[in-house]
């Protein structure tokens, strides 16, 4: 009898929430960091890394839905700035001779002699889309794109490059060590891989590296 009463109460509560049009929001945890250092030849330059406060606090709130006209009132909040900066810090530390976190795009007088250039990361776009069973088998697709700016120590822009990544996942039952969004973590990793393999191929970046008196054969 008691269990019947409880289940009735739960049922009424659920019904009330639905009728009242309440929405559910969930703050996701993202950790895109790597378990191993990248298989990448280090670049002997000293860089400063600048993240704007807006970038570090950047989140994206997305509703869980299959089609544009649908409404589920279930929202996920993706901490993109934090997850991106954590991975970028890890990658920068493993590929550059030294890395210094800066508070502005232009290094202070004290910092100027300690960096050869400043990198800034900006989020341009983010997409997280469940692909529903009618289309193909159910999976989630995530895409992220950034702009990476490289400044010289005097604050002059050397180059601005777009990088992007994609990740997908099939939601599976998980009981321990579960990830909130594999697809997003994979997309962030893919974008950073794109940065590592394409950014240094840009002519402006090659020229900047050559001006740093890098020895022959030390370019990636």
């Amino acid at each position: 009898m008691l269990s019947l009463r409880i289940s009735r109460r739960v049922l009424f509560a659920a019904l009330f929430l639905i009728v009242a049009g309440c929405s559910v929001e969930r703050n996701l945890k993202l950790d895109a960091r790597l378990s191993l250092s990248p298989a990448f030849q280090p670049i002997p330059v000293r860089v400063g890394v600048f993240y704007s406060p807006e970038f570090l606090a950047a989140t994206k709130k997305i509703e869980l839905k299959c089609r544009p006209n649908e409404r589920t009132d279930i929202f996920f909040i993706f901490p993109l700035g934090q997850a991106s900066s954590e991975l970028f810090d890890q990658i920068a530390a493993s590929i550059f001779a030294s890395v210094r976190r800066l508070s502005g795009r232009v290094p202070s007088a004290d910092e100027k002699g300690t960096v050869d250039g400043v990198l800034e990361l900006r989020i341009v776009a983010f997409e997280w889309k469940p692909q529903c069973p009618q289309e193909k088998s159910y999976h989630i697709l995530s895409r992220i794109s950034y702009t990476v700016n490289l400044f010289d120590p005097d604050g002059r822009l050397i180059t601005s490059a777009g990088i992007s990544g994609v990740g997908s996942e099939k939601p599976k039952p998980c009981f321990s060590g579960c990830k909130d969004s594999y697809a997003t973590e994979r997309a962030i990793r893919d974008a950073m891989a794109d940065f590592m393999l394409r950014f240094f191929e840009r002519p402006e970046v090659k020229e900047w590296l050559s001006k740093r008196n890098m020895p022959e054969g030390s370019l990636p």
Binding site: A39, G165, R186, R189, D194, L197
Partner: peptide, 12 residues
């Protein structure tokens, strides 16, 4: 994939 990162990612 963890071992050979940044290679063998979707875009690389």
């Amino acid at each position: 994939k963890e071992s050979v990162y940044p290679y063998f990612m979707p875009s690389t």
